Simulated assay, not measured.
Amino acid sequence: MAGKTKSKPSANGKPTVKNDIWETVVVLFQALLIALVFRSLLFQPFSIPTASLQSNLLIGDYILTSKYTYGYSKYSFSPFEFLPINGRIFGRAPEQGEIAVFRPVPQNVDYVKRVVGLPGDTIQMKNGVLNINGTAVKKERVGTKIDTDSYGTSIPVILYRETLPNGASYIVQEISDNQALDNTAEYVVPDGHFFMMGDNRDRSADSRVLRSVGYVPLENFIGKAEVRFFSIKDNINPWQIWRWPGNVRLERMFQSVYQ
């Protein structure tokens, strides 16, 4: 009769019951193994906890980073960072304008910033304008808004469209052109390293701060940011489903981070 199952008979003719617990353990193990391979080799999710890339990546955005784009190193093989891997294998080098997740040399936490300087480049900020190899990067004012950081502090900011020498274009925002990191000395990016900056220029600790971030070695890159797959206001934990109504930002989900 449809819908019924039969027990499996044993050798002595008596029915036996399958070990449901063992089957469940096997299924869970297989699912975890697949998830681990997916996370280590293909895509890894990250949350955005700070305002350093606003208004492109907001606090509470969740992104997927592709591991294979830049290839693999001990940092991108998380959680297997103990593996004895030197340098990178496969993949390509990061390009100007790409948003990447990386591990700063002095840190033990992951950062997400935009690539602005390549090996051998000279980087300098002059009155809030990014200069690369002695040439000011194109910067066009496009509007204003109110920016709120992870502490709930709100302040007016000016929006600019910045266009790098390779044509990569995106929005940056500034409080003014005379903040702490708006005028710097020249930074010469060492061979095999990259210069990273946040789009929220006056609220970002990035490569301009050598003691805490500085130049990023190629092997310290974890992956290239690709897609926002979830977004929720006020950094609310996603598992708090009862808080989704009115807080989930549906308009930001399943979009490229380069729009």
Score class of each variant (00 low, 15 high):
2 A>P: 09
3 G>E: 09
4 K>L: 08
8 K>T: 08
10 S>V: 06
11 A>L: 14
11 A>I: 12
11 A>E: 14
13 G>C: 11
15 P>D: 14
15 P>V: 00
15 P>L: 05
17 V>K: 15
18 K>G: 08
18 K>E: 13
19 N>M: 06
19 N>S: 09
23 E>Q: 12
26 V>W: 10
27 V>F: 07
28 L>Y: 11
29 F>Y: 10
36 L>M: 12
37 V>M: 13
38 F>T: 12
39 R>G: 01
42 L>T: 03
44 Q>S: 12
45 P>N: 05
49 P>V: 09
51 A>E: 08
53 L>R: 01
55 S>R: 12
63 I>V: 15
65 T>M: 13
68 Y>D: 03
70 Y>A: 02
71 G>M: 12
72 Y>D: 02
72 Y>V: 03
73 S>G: 15
75 Y>L: 08
75 Y>M: 11
77 F>G: 01
78 S>L: 10
81 E>S: 15
82 F>T: 08
83 L>I: 15
84 P>Q: 05
85 I>L: 15
85 I>K: 07
86 N>E: 13
86 N>A: 11
87 G>E: 13
88 R>K: 15
88 R>D: 02
89 I>L: 14
92 R>C: 09
92 R>N: 14
95 E>Y: 08
95 E>T: 06
99 I>K: 00
99 I>D: 00
100 A>N: 11
101 V>D: 00
101 V>K: 01
101 V>Q: 01
104 P>W: 02
104 P>G: 07
104 P>F: 01
106 P>E: 15
110 D>Q: 15
114 R>V: 01
117 G>D: 03
121 D>C: 09
125 M>V: 03
126 K>T: 12
129 V>P: 01
130 L>Y: 01
138 K>L: 08
139 K>R: 12
141 R>G: 07
146 I>N: 15
146 I>A: 11
147 D>I: 04
147 D>C: 11
150 S>A: 13
151 Y>M: 12
153 T>M: 13
154 S>Q: 14
157 V>I: 10
158 I>L: 05
160 Y>L: 04
161 R>K: 14
162 E>T: 04
165 P>S: 07
167 G>T: 11
168 A>P: 03
169 S>H: 04
172 V>D: 00
176 S>N: 14
177 D>Y: 02
178 N>G: 03
181 L>C: 03
182 D>S: 08
182 D>I: 02
187 Y>E: 06
188 V>S: 09
191 D>G: 12
195 F>I: 04
195 F>L: 06
197 M>C: 04
197 M>V: 13
197 M>H: 02
198 G>Y: 03
200 N>E: 07
200 N>L: 05
200 N>H: 14
204 S>M: 07
206 D>T: 05
207 S>M: 04
208 R>T: 06
209 V>K: 11
215 Y>R: 00
215 Y>L: 04
216 V>K: 00
216 V>D: 00
217 P>G: 07
219 E>C: 04
220 N>E: 14
222 I>S: 02
228 R>E: 11
235 N>G: 07
236 I>F: 06
236 I>H: 09
238 P>V: 14
240 Q>A: 14
241 I>V: 15
241 I>G: 05
242 W>G: 13
244 W>S: 09
245 P>G: 08
247 N>T: 09
248 V>S: 06
249 R>F: 06
250 L>E: 14
250 L>Q: 13
251 E>I: 04
252 R>I: 12
259 Q>T: 11
259 Q>K: 10
